[in-house]
Computed example of a mutant assay.
Amino acid sequence: MLQVDLQGGFGEKGRTSVVVSDGNTCVMLDAGIKVGATGDEYYPVLARPIGEIDALFISHAHEDHIGALCHLLRQGYTGPIYMTEETRTEMPATLAQYADPADLADFSPLVEQIRLFRPGEALTVGALSVATGASGHVVGGVWFSVEAAGQRVVYSADIVPESAVFPMQPLPVCDLLILDASYGADPIPGAERAGQIGEWVVGYADGCLLPTPLSGRSLELIAAINVPFAIEAGMREALSAQIHAPDAVHKDRVAILSQRLKSARDWTVDEPLPSCPLLVHDGMGVAGPSRPALEAAEKSGFPILLSGHLPAGSPGARLVDEGKAAWIRMPTHPTLPENIALWEAAGRPRLIGHSCDAAALEALRQHIPALMAGARTGDTHQIDEETTHAHSDFQ
């Protein structure tokens, strides 16, 4: 019998984390932080003593999936940490921005703890078989499938079934699907949103600011922009590595993205804002070069387009609320038709949505009745019982 502990990201966006156990072996899938939260709400709610976790698996290097890694090590986790090569490469920059500085200084992951795998590889921890697959969300990003004694839990992490840039491998049939519900019941296809962003940028081709995460959405934006643009100079090496990582980008997009990146102008934070669209990281204005860039853009009235999740209280959210920035979502998570198709392909299993609030979950349940919209961080789910022991309206 498999047990699933929801440690973060359920009924909320951020601190995404799940534990799956067969009673003898426990694996933790992701360890994120919640941007804008403080104290205990910043980190996952650990469902069991840290010494009971036999292995930690990280899906990708965005802060809401890896930002609590040093915190876990401070709590005493000494086991293996599984991730792809691309996630390992991007990890230091994310931890530098979002880990507690003291934790980062004293409890950075040890080289010998990290175990590398490629998307599509299957791994074994005790009696648990952990399959992986490319997520379509970022280079090196993966979903996880945990199986034992004929039962299977699939945790999608962040996925994009129809990305214009990144391929995604199909999710397997399962008994319980923990699905990326970031967009709730939003039905607008990614291609349509990308077209809207491309048109907006053309209208401000003589200068605008595009804050974006270093991995994932940056390449999606570059694919959508068909005018000369600039990038923060420190992004170039990472973006080039993402484009040319083995099997990480659709083959017909590699040459196009490579040429657009090669033609992009370098910009640094001590320079005036350029007379062309400018990509800077991160996407919320919380950290990285985007924070000073947004400050400069606000002071000068430079056009700003935000294109992803904006936590309450973040600089990006404030600018949108005050009418000083535009917002058009660049889909880097599944839209409604994609999530319905994913659920049906997985055999129409019981479903738990992660990375969205209660209202969005309830809206999604109107389209997928198997969704347990009451699932919340701190709940426990037994697959064979299909009940919770922590939340009365879980189903």
Score class of each variant (00 low, 15 high):
residue 157 A to S: 14
residue 231 I to D: 09
residue 297 A to I: 12
residue 129 S to A: 15
residue 390 A to N: 11
residue 224 A to T: 07
residue 233 A to R: 15
residue 89 T to A: 15
residue 382 Q to W: 05
residue 78 T to D: 15
residue 73 L to G: 07
residue 209 L to D: 11
residue 243 I to K: 04
residue 247 D to V: 10
residue 277 P to D: 10
residue 102 A to S: 13
residue 298 E to R: 15
residue 150 G to D: 10
residue 379 D to R: 01
residue 158 D to H: 15
residue 356 C to K: 12
residue 257 L to G: 12
residue 1 M to E: 14
residue 211 P to Q: 07
residue 360 A to Y: 03
residue 88 R to V: 06
residue 4 V to K: 10
residue 188 I to K: 09
residue 42 Y to N: 01
residue 12 E to V: 07
residue 270 D to E: 13
residue 122 A to Y: 00
residue 275 S to D: 13
residue 57 F to P: 13
residue 327 W to C: 11
residue 285 G to P: 15
residue 8 G to K: 05
residue 98 Y to D: 06
residue 235 M to F: 08
residue 172 P to L: 05
residue 7 Q to Y: 01
residue 116 L to E: 06
residue 282 D to M: 08
residue 243 I to P: 05
residue 82 Y to V: 03
residue 173 V to Y: 00
residue 168 M to L: 01
residue 241 A to G: 12
residue 261 L to P: 07
residue 347 G to I: 04
residue 29 L to A: 01
residue 82 Y to K: 10
residue 5 D to N: 04
residue 218 S to T: 08
residue 152 R to C: 10
residue 376 R to F: 01
residue 108 S to Q: 05
residue 114 I to F: 06
residue 371 L to A: 07
residue 157 A to E: 08
residue 159 I to G: 10
residue 190 G to E: 05
residue 115 R to I: 08
residue 5 D to I: 01
residue 277 P to S: 11
residue 19 V to N: 10
residue 303 P to V: 02
residue 11 G to D: 02
residue 184 G to C: 10
residue 30 D to S: 15
residue 148 A to R: 04
residue 15 R to Y: 02
residue 387 T to P: 00
